[in-house]
Each structure stands twice: as structure tokens, then as C-alpha cells.
Design a protein around this nucleic acid. Structure first.
Length: 593
RNA sequence: GGAGGCGUAGCUCAGUUUGGUUAGAGCACUCGACUGUCACUCGAGAGGUCGCGGGUUCGAGCCCCGUCGCUUCCGCCA
């Protein structure tokens, strides 16, 4: 940090430095001109320190310069660290016990009035996202973003140290790679040399890391940039970073063990507690009891099967549903009886929006059950439903693949409305035994839940020929507060099994060879058992820094329209550039030459 | 692709409901005063394509149509 231009950084000065002559460089954070005295809060990435200018120790020129310099200008100063008197101390600042009495000052980087305040008043809101992105160099000066990016750096270094110490090799994979029709849309890069042909930017290094395993690099990791051309969200950017891990001669437990330790390491780096071991849950259990594959275990609102209780009701639509083999599932909301009719109506709308046919609402009061369906239930149904006075029961009937997501939405909404989510508490869970396949609800075609290289559970190989949709995979996710931190699987290392899975997915030999031939060849050349996992680094950095948007942990993010406002990408290119790539833009009228 | 929110001074916003004189406030900025401030204080001043285009109207920041940008969600994201 010490250079030929400075002896210290702003944030490190303490009373113990009193009497030392120091040279500092930094940005003018704020200044206060009292006439005879001028104070400047000088900022660098280490923090703030107060410079003081006064006639007893500064030249008249220095005082004049200090009074005139604008905020966000860069200055070099030399001065003496002095301990402040008791009355002058500022306990809100780490350096608040000292001033630097400046003897000389040089404005080396004068600043125009910034487009928005870098040092906002406490009452100020943040400027608009658009402005922050357009002037990203200013936004990045704010302490929140500096803290987030510094945390992100520490997380990356922790990852490297942790994995290096365990024998993982950091290996790079191509950015210019092969288009994959599966999964997300690819970003394509035209080839100049080969007219009409395209590279794709990688959606993940999946196949490459499997090739490393086939090549004997039996522990690999990479902090890998990935690209997916899909619409954005607050937690989704078109380019993002994964902590990508793969290892050979491993089973599921080996990977999960490393993953859990790495997560503990990262949480430790951020100073956030992480209890371990992480609880485990199968996919089937998660869907049955929480209605989703990434349950938020910070609160306990579980779904229960109440079919038998409602079977005794005399409501025709319920009888019909149960006769069709549908179940009635729902949740008991302790203390939910306080919810108004309007609120429960909103819950019903939410359930319908998520695909449910409706929502049965039963309130349990000291006088008994209350609600449209309550009187149709047999006496004592309240006990069977497990409802106590003051509770609310919410029930959905329907096929599980409609009812479960709907119940999940209701769970989450109720937890929020009734503030059942404890603050400063976090919950990990490892979800295992994901299904291999899911059927497209419209076409009935099988698709891979994870990806087509995922190994089936050894106990379920026999199901592949009969009911493949019931087969489980050796695939797993690590979930934190209801968010997916990462996921992975044991891969198929047997080329015959891989061919069989492709066939089930409707990928014929010729197609498989054209798309994944290089992987299949490698599998035939002597492939060790292998598997891995990938974590979303951006999301982890976001969670651990307390940011609410991925944009606040990525130095130069894209807008929700996938534009880079600062540098102005994407942009049209001159016709000559297109010609060299053998490209023509379809609708020329829309292109600004 | 769809639905919602936002767009007024450099920044954050009020004003739009019910169209009507010169579009306001705080902060920032400029000038002046001030020797212990730390969101310094006080005085004065400057600062506007009401996102853009079109329409209705005697008259539009306000109403209508279109469009652009930012954002949240749904679809999408093996």
C-alpha cells in the first residue's frame, strides 16, 4: 500500500500514529469550510480520515486550495498526525481520534461536480439504477459497493486457497466454444475464417471439466465465467461466475463433503455463521412437505396430506377430486386466524395464479371451525386437521404437480405476511435424489432435469426401461434460506449408459455424435467415475454482502435489457466488419450504421 | 413475449386526482460571511427539452395514442 507517493492509507491512521509525518492520497469525500479552518474527509478504499487546514500549521495557499477543491477530486497531502482533544473526537469514524494537520496539498485529479453524490446524506435515497450504471466509476466509489467487491475478492481467494490445499487444480477452459442446442440460448460469436460458422460462449464448462477427468486431472476447479442469453432478473445476469468443481474416483458423498466444507469456509470468510453438518432431504420429501425442491427451512410450515379428513365431507367437488385419485394437502398456520377475509382471498388468488383450482380456508376459533367448507366436515374434523383455536388451515386439492407449487407459494406468502421468518437466522439444506427426467406437460417428451450427463441412481437403473420418469439421479443441490446456492451430480462414465440416456432423451446417435461426440469419444477412451458441483459465486457474494441485487456484487453488470450502460454494449458495427464475418443484418432499416 | 411500477433542476422528490398566472422543495453547485467542524452553520444567486413523438383543447407536466429507457414479476433460464 505504501508507494513513492504515500506513506499510509487513510483508514489505518490511529492515535498511535500521533506525531508522525504522513503522505496520503485520496478522494475528497466531503469538506467543511469554517473560514479560518477547513476540514476535508479524505477517502480511499481503506476508509476515511479527516484532514485539517489551519493558519497555525498550513500555508495560506494550502488553506485556499483546500477551500476551493471540489468533492471527488483526488489530492495528495503531506501532514502530521495529531491526536484530537476529547471534545473533538468522532466515535463514528475508525480514524476519529486523529486529524492530519496538512502542511502541503496538491490537487492532482480535479473533479467536475459528480453526476450524483458519492457521499450521500443519511436521508438521501440512492440515485436511479440507470444513473448509477451510466456512471459506474462513481457508483463503484461508494463504500457499499467497495465493501461488496472486496468481500467478493476475499471469497474468491478463500475458494482458491481451500481447493488448492485439497489438491484441486485451477484449470481454464475455452470461452470460444461449441454451441449447444440444449439448455439456455447461446451467445454466438461468428467465425471470420469459417464463413457461416459460429462459436458459442459457454453456458458452463460442463463438458470440458468432464474431459479433464477423462484426461486424469482428477481434481479440477475453476472460477468460471458463464453466459446464458435469457431474460434477466434481479438475481440473474447474462454473464455470471461459477465456482466449478469436478473430481474423479468419487461418489456423491465425496463431492457433498467438499462442497459443505467449502461453503463453511466461505461463510467463515464473510463472518456469517454456518451450522454443519447441513441437514439432508430427498427431492421427494421436499416436494411432499414443502412443495418445492429448495425449501426455506428458516420457518416450519409443512404441508400435510389431509385427504382422509376431507373424504368424509359431503362436498361434491371434493368427492370428485378424491375419486380421481387427487389428494387434499394443506398447511396449518398457527395464529393465522387473525388473517382477514381480504388476506385469505389474496392467498386464494395467489394459489390460482400458481395453477391451483382454488383454496379451501378453514379458521379454527374457540367455538369450532369456521369457513365455507367447515360445516361440510364431520364433527371433530378440527382435531383430525390438527387445528387449535386461533389457527388457520389452508388446503388445496389437485394433482401434485399443480398443487405442490401452489402450496409452496402460499407457504411463502403466509410466512412473509405473518413474519414467521426469523431474522439473522439461516438454514442450509442439501437436497438429494432429484429425478433423472421430467416430461414436458404438453408434448410428453422426456427432458433431463439436471443435464444429460447425470448418472442415474444405481437402484433405479431398472426403471429406465419401464418408467424412466420415476428414476432418481445422483444429483443434488445445496439450498440456503430457500435459494439454490449450487448443484451438481455424479456423471455417467459408462459410454453405453450414456448412449442409453441420450436415446431416452430422444437424441439419436448421429445427433449425439454431432453435439457431444468429443465427450463420448473421451468416455470410450478410459473414463474414471467422476462427478462435481458448481456454485453461483455472484449469488453467494450477494447473500453474504446483504445486497439485494446481483448488480451490486458485479463490477460492471448489465441492465434488465442486457445492455451495458457505461460502455454502451451491445452496439452496431460498421458494414465492413459485418462483411468480413460474412454476416448481413436482416432488417437494415433498424440498424444505425 | 406478457403484466405492473417509475421517468419533472446535477441528485432525491412534490405537483398529475379536478387541464388555467412566472413549475416548487431539500441536497448539490456559484458568490459572500464564519477558527473545531464532522450531513458545519448563515446570507444571496444561478439552474427546467416536465424522457421522446404525435393528438385532443382557447390552453397540456397533468387527458389520449405511440415510443424509448430503468426496474419488479410471469414466461424463459438442460
Amino acid at each position: 500500500m505504501v508507494t513513492s507517493l504515500r506513506t499510509h492509507v487513510c483508514g489505518e491512521l490511529r492515535a498511535s500514529h500521533a506525531g508522525e509525518t504522513v503522505r496520503l492520497g485520496g478522494w475528497v469525500h466531503r469538506s467543511r469550510d469554517l473560514g479560518g479552518l477547513v476540514f476535508i474527509d479524505l477517502r480511499d478504499r481503506s476508509g476515511l480520515v479527516q484532514l485539517s487546514f489551519g493558519p497555525a500549521w498550513s500555508s495560506a495557499d494550502a488553506i485556499a486550495a483546500a477551500a476551493a477543491v471540489g468533492v471527488e477530486s483526488v489530492v495528495l497531502v503531506e501532514g502530521i498526525v495529531v491526536e484530537r482533544t476529547e471534545a473533538q473526537r468522532n466515535s463514528d469514524m475508525a480514524t476519529g481520534d486523529v486529524d492530519v494537520q496538512v502542511t502541503s496539498v496538491r490537487v492532482v485529479g480535479p473533479a467536475e461536480t459528480p453526476a450524483f453524490p458519492v457521499a450521500p446524506a443519511k436521508s438521501d435515497k440512492l440515485p436511479s439504477e440507470e444513473l448509477r450504471l451510466r456512471h459506474r466509476y462513481l457508483d463503484l466509489r461508494r463504500s457499499e459497493l467497495q465493501r461488496s467487491l472486496m468481500l467478493r475478492h476475499r471469497l474468491m481467494q478463500s475458494t482458491r486457497r481451500f481447493l488448492d490445499a485439497r489438491g484441486f487444480l485451477e484449470l481454464e477452459t475455452p470461452i470460444l466454444t461449441k454451441p449447444t442446442p440444449e439448455g439456455a440460448r447461446d451467445y454466438l460469436v461468428p467465425s471470420r475464417v469459417h464463413a457461416g460458422e459460429f462459436y458459442a460462449l459457454p453456458q458452463s464448462p460442463q463438458i470440458y471439466k468432464q474431459l479433464f477427468m477423462c484426461a486424469g486431472y482428477d481434481r479440477y476447479f475453476q472460477i468460471a465465467r458463464c453466459f446464458r442469453d435469457e431474460d434477466l432478473r434481479a438475481d440473474r445476469q447474462p454473464e455470471f461466475t461459477q465456482i466449478d468443481i469436478e473430481a474423479s474416483f468419487v461418489g456423491q458423498e465425496d463431492i457433498l463433503s467438499v462442497a459443505e466444507q467449502l461453503i463453511r469456509e466461505l461463510w467463515g470468510t464473510a463472518g456469517v455463521p454456518a451450522q454443519s453438518p447441513f441437514p439432508r432431504m430427498t427431492y421427494a420429501h421436499a416436494m411432499e412437505h414443502y412443495g418445492c425442491d429448495r425449501p426455506d427451512l428458516r420457518y416450519d410450515l409443512q404441508l400435510h396430506d389431509m385427504t382422509s379428513v376431507f373424504a368424509t365431507s359431503d362436498l361434491p367437488f371434493l368427492q370428485a377430486a378424491i375419486a380421481r385419485g387427487e389428494r387434499v394437502r394443506g398447511l396449518r398456520v398457527p395464529g393465522g386466524g387473525t388473517m382477514s377475509r381480504k388476506q385469505t382471498d389474496e392467498l386464494e388468488q395467489l394459489a390460482k395464479g400458481a395453477g391451483a383450482s382454488g383454496l379451501l380456508v378453514i379458521k379454527c376459533t374457540t367455538e369450532g371451525l369456521d369457513g365455507k367448507v367447515a360445516k361440510s366436515l364431520a364433527a371433530g374434523a378440527g382435531d383430525a386437521l390438527g387445528l387449535n383455536a386461533g389457527d388457520l388451515g389452508l388446503y388445496v386439492t389437485g394433482a401434485d404437480h399443480f398443487a405442490s407449487p401452489a402450496l409452496d407459494r402460499i407457504r411463502q406468502s403466509v410466512a412473509q405476511r405473518l413474519q414467521l421468518i426469523p431474522q439473522n437466522t439461516h438454514a442450509f439444506v442439501i437436497v438429494t435424489d432429484f429425478p433423472m427426467f421430467e416430461r414436458d406437460p404438453v408434448t410428453g417428451v422426456l427432458g433431463a432435469v439436471h443435464h444429460p450427463f447425470t448418472a442415474p441412481h444405481p437402484d433405479d437403473i431398472s426403471l429406465l426401461g419401464s418408467t424412466p420418469e420415476r428414476a432418481r439421479a445422483l444429483a443434488y443441490d445445496i439450498v440456503y434460506d430457500g435459494l439454490e446456492l449450487g448443484g451438481g451430480s455424479i456423471r455417467i462414465s459408462d459410454p453405453a449408459l450414456q448412449a442409453r440416456i441420450f436415446s431416452l432423451l430422444g437424441i439419436d446417435d448421429a445427433t449425439a455424435n454431432a453435439r457431444f461426440g468429443f465427450l463420448l469419444e473421451a468416455l470410450r477412451s478410459g473414463a474414471p467415475p467422476h462427478g462435481g458441483i458448481a456454485f453461483g459465486l455472484d449469488r453467494i457474494a450477494m447473500l453474504l454482502s446483504g445486497a439485494t441485487s446481483l448488480r451490486d456484487v458485479i463490477a460492471f453488470p448489465k441492465t434488465t435489457a442486457a445492455r451495458a450502460l457505461f460502455e454502451g454494449a451491445p452496439s452496431p458495427v460498421p458494414p465492413d466488419d459485418l462483411a468480413e464475418l460474412s454476416l448481413r443484418v436482416a432488417n437494415r432499416s433498424e440498424v444505425v450504421a
